[in-house]
Write a protein that binds this DNA or RNA. Sequence first.
DNA 1: CGGCTGACTCTGG
DNA 2: TCCAGAGCCAGCC
Length: 113
Amino acid sequence: MKQTPNANPSPSYRHRVYAVVRQIPPGKVATYGQVAGLVGGCTARMVGYALSSLPDGSDVPWQRVINSQGRISPHGYGLGSLLQRQLLLAEGVALDLTGRIDLSIFGWLAAAR
DNA sequence: CGGCTGACTCTGG
DNA sequence: TCCAGAGCCAGCC
């Protein structure tokens, strides 16, 4: 089936974000801004809020979504960020000692400024 | 219907 | 490199 990311009428804005995030290949990471751009007509914040409202048991690799700085935001009492880091390492994504990811290498669209 | 919160991003110091 | 403030929209109480 053809995936029409931004041309797919979703019941909710969040579902549309999930569709894009779900297209992120393993071992790669995308920024909120990138996802927002793919979704179209939305800001990076909307993506973050959508993921924050992520339903339980969803197949959305939210862990592959990070901020523009290539870093993990301190979400969920700080426990979620730790979990995300572990998941990324398990995916093969190398994290810097400071917790930074090289978007020019692991970035899905390699949006290195 | 009104108000608050939130996994962001940018610019300046 | 780190800190602070402002702009933004959607969802929930």
